[in-house]
Design a protein around this nucleic acid. Structure first.
Lengths: 275, 275
DNA sequence: GATTGCGGTTCCGCTATGTGAAACCCGCGG
DNA sequence: CCGCGGGTTTCACATAGCGGAACCGCAATC
């Protein structure tokens, strides 16, 4: 997509009377690009990535610098993110009391299983984001980063959530499921079956579907209304993921999820509000 | 400031030839506003806050929604942040290996002092941002939030950093020091003296200067070049902050900072590169 | 059950605004 | 010394987007 795109933007139909600010959208796109790389970037990198003309990109970058979202190294003149984004972003999850509330239980789960624990949330885009993590000091831990966006359909945490969100699941199933490892389930039917099973059992187990050497065991977390948009689970190296360990860990994971659900005001005994 | 008609092309000094995208800057401003409140907001709130006309704000909000930075509740039609910002923001500190590297030492400090520990970083704006936190399970902990921006000049973490950044300190001193509590030091001279003392001693202690019931003990962290842009420290309720406790904790805090500095490649014995 | 008011959304003409090709700089390497 | 690959600046032009005002739709008020 970057390569040879000429500036001609006559795509299909012209939605003429548009009420969106193209320049702002473009600027945000640039910001996002830099955010996704995370590292300091040069102007030309952005130019190539976005396909926009040099002058325009420069103007956008200047704007971002001027508003404090980016800083420019005076020597190398490279652009990098400031802490502003972090401040704003942290405010988002900071308000979520789940993070606070869940922490003790997650730590307990680490102790119980001796594996790294994640708390994940569904992103409207159909991915999942890790919003909290407690690492096991001993275990080999994958390099998951807080805030990382992972596909929901091939991780145990993701499936735990999808299983209880038919609407989102449908959207995900509609798109082709690209293969992340040789083991990834890519057939929509199979995935659907798995989701049903997950919903029935109340937990999800994956092996090497997102990362060739990692697997996971997760369970859904319900909020006061019974809705599921969070899950917690452990990440385990596949070589260690034998039947025994899985069987041993499942109850812990499920119980932790239940505890957190309770903290959020979920009443397991109350009449179910959602299917 | 009505635009007063016509294209005032060549008017005297005309600051006109501007290379910034006003609309994008405005949109970012809106984003920031929403981020700073953290809560879902209504259109009109933003209108009042920014002073921009309703139609314009609406367009900006739509753009932000369209780019995935905001979401709009279909029922209340309120706007709130999505996790996108969190993702990008987390990427910023995620790349900072300080956070990873410091964690074990911070935890150790919690154990040693039984108080909540913060890792802070200087923001170019002259404030400090908490980039990592380890809470003491027992202690009454203040409601500091990750990513929160606090004034550098009335917190112990902030002073630890300012003391070794004369340039920034100067900028801070130049502005009036607004009083946050009755105890806040607001005299520039006094503050300067305190900073000097901090630099000499290698740690900072504050009592109730930022929050009426909290105090702190912090020490600067040096990177491989010897520069200080980070500090770590503990937050202590003032009622518990007697001489003994302070004396007991200072060595721990200082040592922790030294450990982290070492991890960052700082050689205490090497020739000092910075004044 | 009409009325008013308040928020969100949409319209539309005018022009200030941002676009983008090209020129300009500047430090580096040949 | 010249060319090159970055970044920055310029400029004339067309259009993008500003913003006042009209338009909904709900909910509280009368």
């Amino acid at each position: 997509m970057p390569a040879s795109g000429r500036s001609k933007k006559r795509e299909g139909k012209a939605p003429s009377r548009n009420h969106l600010i193209a320049s702002a959208a473009g600027t945000l796109e640039v910001l996002e690009f830099i955010g996704s790389t995370g590292l300091p970037v040069q102007l030309m990198t952005v130019v190539e990535a976005t396909g926009k003309p040099k002058g325009t990109v420069h103007r956008m970058l200047s704007t971002l610098v001027n508003t404090g979202f980016l800083m420019q190294d005076p020597n190398t003149s490279q652009y990098s993110l400031t802490l502003k984004l972090w401040r704003l972003g942290a405010a988002v999850v900071g308000r979520l009391d789940v993070v606070k509330v869940a922490r003790p239980w997650l730590e307990e789960l680490v102790v119980a299983t001796d594996e790294t624990v994640h708390l994940s949330m569904l992103d409207p885009s159909g991915g999942i984001v890790y919003i909290s993590k407690v690492e096991s000091p001993r275990s080999i831990h994958v390099q998951t980063r807080m805030g990382q966006l992972s596909p929901a359909w091939c991780t145990s945490t993701g499936r735990s959530i999808l299983a209880f969100n038919p609407a989102v699941a449908e959207r995900v199933l509609a798109r082709p499921l690209e293969s992340r490892t040789p083991k990834t389930v890519t057939s929509p039917q199979r995935l659907l079956a798995i989701l049903r099973e997950t919903a029935a059992k109340g937990y999800a187990v994956t092996r090497a579907e997102n990362h060739p050497e990692m697997g996971g065991i997760s369970a859904p977390i319900r909020d006061h209304s019974g809705a599921v948009s969070l899950s917690c689970g452990i990440a385990v190296p596949v070589f260690r993921m034998n039947r025994e360990l899985v069987d041993a860990c499942i109850p812990h994971v499920v119980r932790t999820a239940a505890r957190i659900s309770a903290e959020l005001g979920y009443e397991p005994d109350a009449t179910r509000l959602v299917a």
